[in-house]
Design a protein around this nucleic acid. Structure first.
Lengths: 187, 187
DNA sequence: TTAATCATGTAACACGTTACATGATTGC
DNA sequence: GCAATCATGTAACGTGTTACATGATTAA
């Protein structure tokens, strides 16, 4: 899998808590992976048991106590090993698991109106992510000094991928709505 | 989940065996979902137990015996219910789970050469899928009479999505290779 | 006063992957 | 003779989701 490796990657940049990691997953990772907070905590636990991480509990007065995870040598080794291995996982990048596209695929069972409504709600979701983009880019900029030019380069490359895909999706949505309308002689 | 619903959708078009379904998943579904043959068999089994399908065993002399699954009324009801329900699953369409992008994200830990090689192998994978496109489109055409114009419309819409995304990815790959080269003053 | 943010976790269940198991027919 | 196609499955394990559980502080 790679959630573990995603977490190792983030922790190789700086020690963090599960809570911080879960927020990071909501940012940069928005393009790549989605996971629930609860899974992050259990993964961190199992990673610590594997010896990839060590944790330090920090008592706080004003806020709930927290647990800061730091990557170990074994963790770094595991991470680099994964990063450099040939990797058969490239194909999975092509087709995720999209319940949305599945709905579209079988929209022949519903009405044109329902299909158009489906497209429009997808458009809303896409536009929502579009707004998040600016935040992601500026977060990358802000962390630039800390993580260095090399990492920043690749963060921006991944962000660019997300932006390009999003733009294409929006074009496809408009085109598709027209296609459906034309097919049904609507408007 | 939706693998079950994907299978219901395909079976609503015509009764089929697990083997045929697994091949179909390798075609139209290439854009949407990837799964292993073995999972299809277990899912079909559990769907039959839920009463969504019935199976008929066909004895063959020249080939191994097979089991043809047919969707029931309960299965059709479940499928239409899923298709029409509001559906929170749209967001997942935005970020799948891409081990490939995760590698790119953390390529700051490797060399520029390694990152470029990663891009190039992704390009190969993309081009391979590009070749499959023609086959998918012609398969849709061939089935057009059987499934009807309405379904054919949406099959082509999904195919178009896959083609547009692929084209964008190829553009991103070329752009990215240049970006990496420029960053490192290569060539 | 109500929602958001901070902060962590467990238990049960659902879904997906890998390895294992079998075996005839057809085309190169 | 070898690979591909046809055809189905089980067992074990790994991953991901949902529901449950707690509780203080801070900003609108």
């Amino acid at each position: 899998m790679s959630l573990k490796h995603g977490l190792l990657g983030l922790l190789s940049l700086s020690p963090q808590t599960g809570y911080e990691l879960s927020k990071e997953f909501a940012l940069t990772m928005k393009y790549i992976w989605h996971t629930k907070t609860t899974q992050i905590y259990t993964e961190l636990n199992s990673m610590e048991q594997k010896g990839w991480l060590v944790s330090e509990r920090v008592i706080q007065d004003d806020k709930p106590n927290k647990k800061i995870y730091t990557i170990t040598e074994a963790g770094t080794a595991e991470f680099l090993n994964w990063l450099l291995e040939p990797g058969e996982d490239i194909e999975n990048a092509l087709a995720g698991r999209s319940a949305f596209l599945l709905r579209v695929l079988f929209s022949g069972n519903t009405s044109a109106d329902a299909a158009i409504a489906l497209m429009e709600s997808f458009r809303e979701t896409c536009l929502g992510l579009g707004n998040a983009h600016k935040g992601i880019r500026s977060a990358i900029d802000q962390d630039a000094d800390e993580v260095g030019a090399e990492h920043t380069l690749y963060f921006n490359i991944v962000a660019r991928h997300g932006e390009m895909i999003l733009k294409t999706r929006l074009e496809w949505i408009e085109e598709t709505i027209q296609t459906i309308k034309n097919h049904h002689n609507i408007k």
